[in-house]
Structure formats: C-alpha cells, structure tokens
C-alpha cells in the first residue's frame, strides 16, 4: 500500500486527491494477497487494525493512572514485567468515555514509532481478507479520521473502517513530544 504522507497534506482537496492516488495504487496492485485484520468495535462502530501491528489481545486488566499524563492516556499496565501504556482509542477518535468495561479489551500494538496498549470496546474477530476487496474509505469520514484511515471492508452487515496504526502511533508520539 502506498504511503500517505499526512504531514504534507494541508487541505481537504489535497487529502482527497492523495486518497485518489492511493486508491488507484490499490487497483493496480491486484495480487490476491490476504490481509489479516483485527476487527474491533468502538461505540458500536466497527474498525480494524492490520494484525501485523497487533502483538496480543489482553482482557481487561487493572490500569494504573499516571499523574500528569494526557487525557487520551488511561495509564499503564504490567505485561509480564514490562510497563506498557494504555491509550484510550475512544478519546483519540472523539467518542465519549466507555462506561461498561466488562467486554473491553486492550490490544498491544507495536509500530516503528512506538509500542502501547490500545483500549477498545470489544474485539469481534481476526480475519483474513483479500486485498482486492478492500474499498476506499467512505467519503463521509470525519476530517480528524481522514489521515489515519486506509480503507474499508464489508463484513456481515457492518462497514469496517481500517485504521493505519503506524500513522496513528507516529502522530501520537509526535503529539506527546511536542
């Protein structure tokens, strides 16, 4: 999949044309390669991360609060002796906070930029999906989501939005340092 460099994109038009370019690249690239996805929900909306970025899925374990940390950071957890942060994806994508955490899961995501836990409402399934069946993201996407969405698939009656964890983590890390 071609890179979508958001740092250079400044207006919606730019974004759309870049998107267009991106979609074309997908069409040319007609390998029947399978993309593995971890499908999860946030406030009844379906999303997915490429599974290559997700190291493990943890059921809800107690999170310790860190003083002075940004609101999007729930705190830290202990995963076999290592401290991992837990990012609230709801807060990152502008959903309200989760009240019932009974089914909630923490995904451990790892990209070049960073490694962190990500809190999601539920994990639905882990599927392999043919690259060719991945469509361009819906045009109704809210602007704050545009840079981090790479496509969408149709799964059981649900539109699943595929998120770019590499980009998300990169932005998040830069946000923390800036």
């Amino acid at each position: 999949m071609s890179d979508l460099d958001t740092s250079e994109i400044s207006s919606i038009n730019d974004i759309l044309s870049a998107k267009q370019h991106n979609t074309n690249a997908d069409v040319v690239d007609v390998d029947e390669t399978l993309v593995k996805l971890v499908v999860f929900t946030l406030d009844k909306n379906w999303y997915a991360f490429p599974s290559e970025n997700i190291k493990e899925v943890l059921s809800d374990i107690p999170v310790s609060v860190l003083p002075g940390c940004p609101a999007s950071l729930e705190g830290v957890i202990n995963v076999r002796g290592d401290i991992e942060s837990v990012i609230s994806l709801r807060s990152l994508l502008n959903y309200g906070s989760l009240t019932d955490t009974a089914n909630s899961r923490i995904l451990i995501g790892a990209t070049e930029a960073m490694r962190s836990g990500i809190r999601v409402d539920t994990v639905e399934e882990i599927i392999a999906f043919s690259q060719t069946n991945i469509k361009a993201p819906p045009s109704t996407l809210p602007t704050h989501m545009v840079p981090i969405v790479t496509g969408a698939i149709q799964l059981k009656n649900h539109t699943v939005t595929i998120l770019d964890l590499e980009k998300m983590f990169e932005n998040y890390r830069d946000g923390l340092q800036g």
Partner: peptide
C-alpha cells in the same frame, strides 16, 4: 516507562 512517555517528567 516506555520511551514515548519519557517526556512525562513527573514520573
């Protein structure tokens, strides 16, 4: 703390 939280100087 994980590397990306090192800017959190309080902890």
């Amino acid at each position: 703390l994980p590397d990306h939280l090192l800017s959190l100087s309080l902890v």
